[in-house]
Amino acid sequence: MSNNQNDQKDPKILVFSTEKISDPAIDLAGLLKLHYPATAYTINVPCSSGIKPRWIMHAFEKGFDGVFIAADGTDCPYSIECTTKTGELVSKVHGMMKEKNITPARLKMAAICSVCAEPFVKHMKTFHSELSAMASN
C-alpha cells in the first residue's frame, strides 16, 4: 500500500480498459453520471490479453493499491480465446505478486462489455471497499 495516510483511506486503482470494448462502457458510466471512486484511473490498451505483466507490477511498485483489468471477454474483436488468454495473464501476474509479497487479491479481472456501465461501477465500488478493508487489516 502507498505510504500516504490519505491514500490508505482512499485506495488508488489503476484500470486497464480496452479501446473498443470496456472503455466505451466506462465512458457510458460517466455519461449516465453513475459515480464510482474518483481514485480509479484508466489507461486503455488495444486488448486485455496484450497487457504486459511488468506494467501491472510497475503500478504496484509505484503505489497503486489495486489493478483492475476491464477485460474484453467474449466480445473481444481479436479472438474468441481472449478470456482464456487474459485469465492466463492474470494467473501469471498473481504468481509474480506472491513472489513480491503483494496480496494477489489486489489484482482483479472482469469482463466488461461495451455497454456494461453499471457492472463496471459496481466492480469499482466493491474493489475499492475490498482494498480499503485490506489496508485496515
Binding site: 466506462i26 465512458d27 457510458l28 458510466a29 460517466g30 455519461l31 453520471k33 453513475l34 459515480h35 464510482y36 474518483a38 481514485t39 484511473y41 484508466t42
Partner: peptide, 21 residues
C-alpha cells in the same frame, strides 16, 4: 485525455475529487 466522461461527469458528485483526478 478524457476528463469529461471519465472525469467531470463520472465524478460530478465530488468536484474536488474530479479536479484531482
Amino acid at each position: 485525455v478524457n476528463i469529461r466522461e471519465q472525469g467531470s461527469w463520472a465524478h460530478s458528485d465530488n468536484p474536488k475529487k474530479a479536479t484531482e483526478k
